[in-house]
């Protein structure tokens, strides 16, 4: 994993895990959140999706696993077309898309362990999940993941006792225990302080590298995105304005995405580079 591949390759390297074709979402209010978005994400690639509030970033992510129903267009996960699936088949495909949320979206009154295991709900029958009788292999994996994110001793704590960074790590475990092929990450650091934000982004990118996971990360912090991801997509008014390497983000590009502003301070200089997957 490195910075060295050329710009074009960033888009097409490897087999595409996710393919989006002419995706359109128009809300009932008439809001055109997405206007014909096309994109592909190859296996193992972490893409960050940047753009102003209301550009359609959250909508795009939610149209992929159909938490928001797209108006038209097609989404493929590997070779399964998501947008045409029945409810049952959609649930099976959702298991392969882990999701991480801005406000963590943990079940506050359940324990850390229960929250992590809830990532297995798509695999476990209703009564087993209701009685919390998960297969031992799931429990083993949950402990392994909690150990990986340094939360092993928190397993029995209730989720609302945890700090923001700890909660987001639980959220990451819940997404990973699904054994996904793709991670959908919605503003993972928006509620965190700068240091914790970096730790969380580092953790997400490391885990993606370990597991050869593709990920789409919505993010407001452009410098943070440049620090950790291999490819940046800029969205504005539901249209892709930019798609390329993080190093290719120039003031002109940022103006195209966000509008006129002095961008010099926002863009990360090459000198202060931090290793991508240290």
């Amino acid at each position: 994993m490195g910075l060295s591949f050329p710009g074009q390759d960033a888009r097409t390297r490897g087999e595409a895990v996710l393919k989006i074709e002419k995706l359109v979402k128009t809300y009932k209010t008439g809001d055109k959140a997405l206007r014909a978005v096309d994109m592909e994400v190859p296996q193992g690639q972490v893409v960050s999706l940047i753009g102003p509030s209301g550009a359609g970033k959250s909508t795009l992510i939610r149209c992929i696993n159909r938490l928001v129903e797209p108006t038209s267009g097609k989404v493929w996960l590997d070779d399964v077309e998501i947008s045409g699936l029945s409810a049952g088949a959609l649930r099976r495909e959702r298991r392969r898309m882990g999701m991480i949320f801005q406000e963590y979206a943990l079940i506050e009154r359940l324990t850390v362990m229960e929250n992590v295991l809830s990532g297995r709900l798509g695999y476990v029958g209703f009564w087993r999940s209701f009685l919390r009788r998960y297969p031992q292999s799931d429990v083993n994996e949950a402990f392994r993941l909690l150990d990986r994110v340094d939360l092993l001793e928190m397993a029995d704590k209730r989720a609302d006792e945890l700090s923001g960074g700890q909660r987001q790590r639980v959220g990451i475990c819940r997404a990973l225990i699904q054994d996904p092929a793709l991670l959908l990450v919605d503003e993972p650091t928006a509620s965190l302080d700068p240091k914790t934000s970096r730790q969380i982004m580092r953790l997400i990118t490391e885990l993606c590298a370990e597991r050869q996971l593709a990920a789409i990360v919505n993010i407001h912090d452009v410098a943070l995105a440049q620090m950790f991801v291999q490819r940046v997509i800029g969205l504005r008014f539901g249209v892709i304005e930019f798609d390329g390497l993080p190093t290719a983000l120039t003031p002109e590009v940022l103006t195209a995405i966000y509008g006129e502003e002095d961008w010099q301070a926002t863009i990360r200089k090459d000198g202060e580079s931090e290793e991508l997957s240290a």
């Binding site: 298991r95 979206a105 079940i107 990532g119 709900l121 798509g122 959908l184």
Partner: peptide, 18 residues
């Protein structure tokens, strides 16, 4: 929280109970 549970591929009853 409902979204998060739905996104795991849980069925309607599981979404309700969790």
């Amino acid at each position: 929280q409902v979204e998060a549970i739905t996104a795991t591929g849980a069925g309607p009853l599981q979404v309700t109970t969790y």
